[in-house]
Write a protein that binds this DNA or RNA. Sequence first.
DNA 1: GTAGTACCTAAACCTGACTTTAGGTCAAGG
DNA 2: CCTTGACCTAAAGTCAGGTTTAGGTACTAC
Lengths: 145, 145
Amino acid sequence: MYTIGQVSEMFNLPISTLRYYDKEGLFPSMQRQSGIRQFGETEVEALRVIECLKTSGLEIKDIKKFMEWCVEGPATYAQRKELFETRKTAVEAEMIQLQKTLDMLRFKCWYYETAIQDGNEDRLNDLMPNDLPADIQKLYNNAHS
Amino acid sequence: MYTIGQVSEMFNLPISTLRYYDKEGLFPSMQRQSGIRQFGETEVEALRVIECLKTSGLEIKDIKKFMEWCVEGPATYAQRKELFETRKTAVEAEMIQLQKTLDMLRFKCWYYETAIQDGNEDRLNDLMPNDLPADIQKLYNNAHS
DNA sequence: GTAGTACCTAAACCTGACTTTAGGTCAAGG
DNA sequence: CCTTGACCTAAAGTCAGGTTTAGGTACTAC
């Protein structure tokens, strides 16, 4: 069993955030000892899942729903699996988006490196996409697809 | 030259958002024709960059700074390149984070699939990490690293 | 016995990124 | 002529996800 202060250190999260999560219902089965929160293995695992679902783009109120399903037992296994499948799809889509963004950023890095060397953008402005070096052209195409 | 309505359709962004971006200074050299905004090639390219920088996690006020640098000319090439380099690093870090998240999600999918088959989590609870199937163990380790 | 530390609550506040509202201009069509 | 549609502004409202504030409890150390 951990205190809120210990969990705050373990997860590098402000205490206020942990209390906020609790208030929002993210730890539906957390116990108290004369008013003081007791974080057990259940809550620590819950926090790992919270961080995962948050990173996946899920909102707090939907994370709360998931935590409630966990309390409801085996009847909700299918819904819980569905949720993770949906999140998986969302994250896969976001990674594709980020890959495009990354290629755009790499293209811009090359662009400004060239502009610095030239001292201006004149040559760059005259360049057609297929005048670009092969590797840079790939970044450009990927970023604009 | 495009009207705000045309750009809204092109980028699939609400007109209100485009006006908001303008108000925030994201199109520092946009022209007006008797009060009406005129989006030229500069503004369209600006919007592509805005979407890229926003996806990379940059705030509106910092995108504004970048747009101002663009107006200042060659003197700011180095700063602009620096900005894209920094964004590149940030996105690369985020992709690593998302890869971990994805492995956690895949692990949870496997977990609940197994729970559905078993009808309970008893067997899963007794499993030590290295009792897991090799591929699942990899997901688990990656997600918890 | 009182100062410090770790915990608690309710409620107000904050930030970023928009969106909505209320009111106005202007050109074209019936 | 008057209504419809596309544009305009300033200002207020919204929403998520916290954070801060103000005030209180309870144990420990000096």
